[in-house]
């Protein structure tokens, strides 16, 4: 028996909501996500946790993207709770509107969640997101980060890792995938707004994810939770490996798990045993060109440096904290 599994037939403490027979299942079966979709899993985990924390009083605002398309296409709607989709770039603003309406009706008990992929969050919806943050509107924004535009066929986004192969950053004799000098860090941008709560989470650590969402839901003001969701199709791995890949990303330090309050990192989830980024990268075809015989070792060491920096910055080594 173990506390690391989602459930435990003996103990009731440290068991995830996802292991509960009575979990809300806010997103129903029959949705059209691909096999092994990390985002579908993350959405159920996150929204179920939010639902529990808010006593079932949740309204969802969804940006255009995979999640929107696979969860709600006439005549089939997978959502069990009120949900609205408007546009690709405006989900945070729509959520601000819903928040304003509910605040007007003195219904602060109803919690509003806006959600979108990295495309809508990092790129097209950045303006609206920043506006929602700086006004400190009472909205929890969840970004499901699969590091490219998957719905349209894997094009580069602002969240795409350096040297990634995407449909718009194909490696060739001149380029090694995505330009390493590009991209941004939205959790840090969110923190720079000084909003009450920012956290990163992953489907590789559901206990942590649920706790963060539950905490985030209960805070007033603008909140941001960034969830790492591996995409079998876009990243090039077997659908059965989704959770494994997510765990590798955490373990190598490329996806640091932390919490920040009012712009300051307050907590990070240490890594049990740090692994090399290679172990994470080579499991995915989007990085296969970095492992070809003729490939330069520079991209790998560049990515390793990012991971090392994360480990240092967020104090991810066990026993060493940056607090």
């Amino acid at each position: 028996m173990s506390s690391l599994t989602l459930g435990n037939r003996i103990k009731s403490e440290n068991v995830t909501i996802q292991a509960s027979r009575l979990r809300p299942n806010t997103i129903s079966s029959g949705h059209r996500a691909c096999q092994g979709c990390g985002e579908a899993l993350a959405a159920r985990c996150a929204i179920d946790a939010a639902y529990e924390a808010a006593n079932g009083k949740i309204i969802l605002v969804n940006a255009t993207g995979c999640l929107e398309v696979f969860s709600c296409a006439t005549p089939e709607n997978a959502w069990k709770i009120p949900w609205i989709h408007s546009l690709f770039g405006n989900a945070p603003a729509v959520a601000s509107g819903v928040a304003a309406a509910l605040s007007n009706q003195k219904r602060n008990d109803i919690r509003i969640i806006a959600q979108g992929g990295d495309g809508s969050t990092y790129d097209i919806g950045m303006g609206c997101l920043s506006g929602m943050f700086e006004r400190n509107d009472d909205v929890l924004y969840i970004c499901y980060d699969n590091q490219a535009y998957m719905n349209t066929g894997v094009q580069r986004s602002g969240a795409t890792l350096p040297f990634t192969r995407t449909a718009t950053t194909l490696p060739n004799s001149k380029y090694m995938g995505n330009d390493p000098q590009t991209g941004k860090n939205v959790p840090q941008i969110a923190m720079a707004h000084g909003i009450p709560y920012v956290a990163t989470a992953s489907i590789g650590h559901i206990h942590d994810l649920e706790q963060k969402i539950a905490k985030a839901v209960q805070i007033n003001g603008a909140r941001y939770v960034h969830i790492h969701v591996p995409c079998p199709l876009g990243w090039g791995f077997e659908p059965s490996k989704t959770v494994k890949i997510a765990k590798l990303a955490i373990k190598c330090g490329l996806f640091p798990l932390f919490e920040a309050e009012n712009g300051k990192v307050t907590k990070s989830t240490p890594i049990d045993e740090v692994i090399a980024v290679d172990d994470y990268l080579k499991a995915q075809r989007r990085f296969a060109h970095l492992f070809s015989k003729s490939a330069s070792p520079d991209p790998l060491s560049f990515l390793q440096k990012i991971a090392d920096k994360n480990i240092e910055k967020y104090g991810l080594k066990k026993g060493i904290s940056n607090e």
């Binding site: 028996m1 173990s2 989602l6 459930g7 435990n8 995830t16 996802q18 027979r21 079966s29 949705h31």
Partner: peptide, 28 residues
């Protein structure tokens, strides 16, 4: 041993968890 990993990790929510904790795939 009823750790519920399969139930919790299924992206499609296809596993039925019965009252006694036993699990069953819903192949639908």
């Amino acid at each position: 041993f009823h750790c519920d990993n399969c139930y919790g990790y299924c992206p499609d929510g296809t596993i039925i968890k019965h009252k006694d904790g036993s699990l069953e795939f819903n192949y639908d």
